[in-house]
Design a binder for these strands. Structure first.
Lengths: 347, 347
DNA sequence: TATATCCTCGTAAACGTTTACGGGGGCAGC
DNA sequence: GCTGCCCCCGTAAACGTTTACGAGGATATA
């Protein structure tokens, strides 16, 4: 005798009543409910997930898909870890469990997702690192499962996403640099097909245009989003015939490698070349000269992602009304010395 | 009409035959099997996980539990990400899915695990960052679920674990340092109750004793396993009345912060103080002076962990015979300049 | 006292699979 | 032609829950 049956037998009541008592249904005597609850902890009863999911038709599990190429393993992906804290703080309030679904580099992400969703392992999905023309969002949209992607998608505009404010970042960075009469401003872009590369590039172009500066394809440097990528980007820049005087980096760890390559050439950020980093990180916070970059609370972002997802799920819409399905997450400018604005280096 | 029923109806055969065909059972005509397989991909059929798990009594899912405190979010925990790649390469061969179970800092890890296992969400568990007197291993042992912990446990010796070779690391580090007549060798230990702190400390003591050196509690520095922890550890060492001449670090990112604090004091690793790092990482690889540390293939470690886990599961024991349940994972010495062995700095 | 109402609980069906069991039909051997 | 065997397939039960339905008893109302 196992499961709820054992509980029922132990209490000499029917399994129906036990179930109702545990699930907080109204038509059960408060006294028996207490007895059931007590017996449940005494016997260590936990409802079987398979049975419950089968009957309910839902799993109470939210999936967060990430990719685990050796590439991302080499770079430290604390982005996702930070996010999870915020996600769970919201999901836990609704007895939803978060599981992380790591898609290995061996498998096609589309297939992987199809398997997970097709088997009904999760009630909702959170996508990360949205690709350009990401087939995953098409699939999820067709399969009618609630989902949200972190990183805007270019596939239609009906499904929800939250993305970082790349326009704001590019605008503020270019503004600062142009103020110092920089006009050869380089930008780094991931070599992969991740969508943020396209978005950042567009934002960069728009910002240049706003200042009447021409767009020079030479100044777009494709570099891996890792420390080594930053190193190689700097290397490439230093060897350019007409060296850019400023650069905008796209990934937090790149700044470390970029600085390293500069110091090897006895150059310094801020004095020899203006550097604007992307996300502030524990590592970047101690660079010298201090890095101008953008701050972001991963936990708050996670909370927003979770709430936006819940807003698309009928059973939670009452608590999280569906607002704008597309959300641009602001990032706060952290002024440093690396782009050496005259006004930013009074100390 | 949904699921396997729809498939059966579409083919005009019974659901039993469809199930047998899909699961590769012998008593089904090869021709009908082909038709079933074709129809399955045509209709995009995927077996419902809940139904299957309920009937089979197993989920074909392996859980990897990690903890997501803001602490680990701040430090970049690429350790786990690297591990997953190896885990999946083994698990995928047996149609097992890996899911990551992030336990937030809000929840007690014991409760969390109890919920996951009690609900029968997974067939097996992989624990990380084993604590001293870890209640989770007791619970898992009692609940008879196959599991393995990454990080040795002090609770009995019947359940399997794989741990890094802290003894080997401590021995080789102390050997090198003593060869240069260092006799005040400091060590950093995490401030938490994680078991590797105890293990590393013991290994350090044993290594000292082997060289006839006294153990001085003053030389045990409790520092967070983060870049900032390394910074503060250096700070603390520099302010000690009788400054140690050498130090062994425990976490890869600590070296970065340690170097930073040294350079602020115009000191250098290798010449002013001997530094032995722990795990080689993308960041540490570019430190200057180069860091003496220990190399480790996370992917291979993941493979070993997965295989050891499968060895404890009856249905896979044929393929992964149960060997030694406790495994010490070797780490390869990477000679650098930071501990400045005369023989190591010829270039 | 008869009837209606409410509270509480038991019964049984359903969710989508897998699998033990048995049956029908074809074929070989006598 | 009868028996036995084998191949293939359909039937139905089971896995552990949840929940619609209805029954029974107690209480209130007329």
């Amino acid at each position: 005798m196992k499961g709820i049956r054992r509980l029922a037998q132990h209490l000499n009541i029917s399994i129906g009543t036990v179930s109702r008592a545990l699930n907080g249904k109204p038509d059960v005597n408060e006294d028996t409910r207490r007895r059931v609850l007590a017996a449940a902890v005494e016997l260590g009863y936990m409802p079987n997930q398979a049975g419950r999911a089968l009957r309910r038709g839902s799993t109470s599990v939210i999936g967060l898909m990430i990719e685990t190429s050796p590439e991302t393993a080499a770079n430290s992906d604390n982005f996702v870890v930070g996010l999870m804290d915020g996600l769970q703080s919201v999901l836990a309030r609704h007895e939803l469990d978060l599981i992380v679904l790591p898609c290995s580099s061996d498998e096609d992400p589309g297939n992987y997702l199809q398997r997970i969703v097709g088997r009904r392992l999760v009630d909702g999905m959170i996508l990360t690192s949205t690709q350009h023309r990401d087939t995953r969002v098409d699939f999820l949209a067709r399969s009618k499962i609630p989902f949200i992607s972190l990183g805007r998608s270019d596939a239609g505009d009906t499904h929800p996403w939250i993305d970082l404010d790349f326009e704001g970042v590019a605008n503020r960075a270019v503004d600062r640099l142009v103020t110092q009469s920089h006009h050869r401003i380089a930008i780094t872009i991931p070599p992969t097909d991740i969508n943020l590369g396209y978005v950042f590039l567009d934002a960069y172009k728009a910002a240049l245009e706003r200042h009447g500066l021409p767009f020079d394809p030479e100044l777009v440097i494709r570099a891996k989003t890792s420390e080594q990528g930053g190193y190689l980007a700097a290397d490439q820049m230093l060897n350019m015939p007409e060296r850019p005087t400023a650069v905008m980096l796209i990934y937090e760890l790149m700044a470390i490698g970029f600085y390293r390559r500069l110091s090897e050439a006895s150059l310094q950020a801020g004095t020899d070349i203006a550097v604007v980093g992307f996300r502030e990180s524990p590592q970047s916070r101690f660079l010298s000269p201090t890095l101008t970059c953008f701050r972001l609370s991963l936990r708050d972002l996670g909370i927003a992602v979770a709430e936006s997802l819940l807003a698309t799920m009928p059973e939670y819409q009452a608590q999280y009304p569906l607002g704008e399905v597309h959300m641009i997450w602001p990032m706060e400018l952290v002024e440093g010395e690396s782009d050496a604005l005259p006004t930013a280096a009074p100390t």
